[in-house]
Design a protein around this nucleic acid. Structure first.
Length: 153
DNA sequence: GCCAACGTTGGC
DNA sequence: GCCAACGTTGGC
């Protein structure tokens, strides 16, 4: 079992949006970074733990606990001409971009970015590293446990 | 809106 | 294969 932190812009898909979806499950569309894609393709397993993170918003932070609910499969938005995620270079017979389904298990309080930054136990959390831009990052078990404890989840 | 940091592109 | 230019991310 692995653990992950996955960023979503709440203007696009918030934790509330995900909770409102059938089975509280949403396809994680729009990943257009090879490293993040490879995590989904090569390392994620159904049942892996996910920290649902809101980015590019007023109060960035972890807002929910979720699980990986599917293996990786082609992201349909790459073939949709009208989607902002459309990739004209990707062919249906050789899809370039993948996604997984993510099921929210629990909405939590917002464990904010500043709050995480001031916690010495989270010093090595990848998402806190300077210059980090990856939308999907692995989370070490000790960090996972620590964060869930802080969230009372 | 600004800008640092990073990833991708493309000429050579 | 190098690297400058460009585009994007994402906190502030």
């Amino acid at each position: 079992m692995n653990y992950w932190l996955m960023k979503s812009e709440p203007d696009e898909v918030s934790v509330d949006d995900a909770l409102a979806a059938p089975d509280a499950t949403v396809p994680w569309t729009g990943v257009r970074n090879y490293q993040a894609r490879n995590f989904m393709r090569d390392a994620m397993r159904v049942g892996d733990g996910v920290l649902f993170y809101h980015s590019s918003c007023a109060e960035p932070g972890v807002v929910g606990v979720a699980r990986v609910a599917s293996t990786a499969y082609p992201d349909p938005t790459q073939f949709d001409r009208k989607s902002p995620y459309h990739d004209p270079a990707s062919k249906p017979e050789a899809p370039r971009w993948l996604l997984v389904d993510v099921q929210v298990l629990k909405k939590t309080r917002n464990l904010t970015l500043p709050e995480m930054r001031e916690d010495p136990a989270l010093e090595d959390l990848l998402v806190l590293k300077k210059g980090n831009r990856l939308s999907i990052t692995p989370v070490e078990p000790r960090h996972w446990k620590h964060i869930l404890k802080k969230l009372g989840a």
